[in-house]
Amino acid sequence: MLNRETLVNLILAALLLAVPLMANAFGQPFYVTLATRVAILALAATGLNLALGLGGLVSFGHAAFFGIGGYAAGILATHAFSGDPLLLGLSGTNQMPLIWLVAMLVAGLVGLLIGLISLRTSGVYFIMITLAFAQMVYYFAISWPAYGGEDGLSILVRNQFPGANTMKPVSFFLICYAVLIVALGLFVLIRGSRFGSALQAARQNEVRVATVGIAPYRIRLTAFAISAALTGLAGALFADLNRFVSPSMLSWHMSGELIVLIILGGTGRLFGPLAGAALFVIFEYVLGGLTERWQFFLGLILLGTVLFARGGLLGLLAGKARHG
């Protein structure tokens, strides 16, 4: 039998698929692009949800991984286009699967390094240290002229995926959607596994986890690296969506936005990031059409969520989270 949360999840997944397909059928590619944005932001936030939702690690630096993924895509595509070798004689590539792999590896590795130091702290210090690391990456990107510096880097032709015309908005949407679904599947597996149990237990009671003989630090570090890799993957897709990468992907606003998505949707919930990303993009589009100061109203909504609906949209629709 389906429980309520599964039902809500299925409906959300179906909506995200149906809306752009219908928009496409009616010749409205703009809405397809909007839906693609939702899918990519949801993927980025799903990465963060692993660390923040399951592990209780409030990272205020996930923009670093998002931007690193974006730059991985941008840099590889630039070299593929120009034909200049990248490093050690290796050339760039415009093949998405390869780009994704590189984006995840680099973001995961940087996540591992940042986590190695940051996870020795907790609470406010953890928030601040992750922010500081992300800002370091941000300023590095700004001051590095080789790839556009402050002006960013354009991707002239969207990267390719075998058997699909990625320039068609609906094709690119379907690719992003499929990646999101795979990532959500991975989230489910990890959440239900031994590793996920240890991670969630460490969020609830670190002393208890150590007392049964599991060192929380290693569990958290692994989760942080996986989380970074997923957010990096989203960054690579985001770069391809906009065909443009700029340091703004690395800025602390982006880190904040990812946290906002999770809070709006429901912290630690499987479909929290998707619900949050959908709400966010809809607000941005609807309120943004009415007023330039739409973020003020978003702020009010966030305030309302935190005060009166702490489970976010998923909490409202599907009730309290349940652990087996």
Binding site: L189, R194, F195, A198, R208, V212, G213, T222
Partner: peptide, 16 residues
């Protein structure tokens, strides 16, 4: 959680 710790590794990511 204690049984899993006692059995060994918590680095298993897929089996529910």
């Amino acid at each position: 959680l204690a049984v899993q710790a006692q059995q060994g590794s918590s680095f298993r990511f897929f089996k529910p």
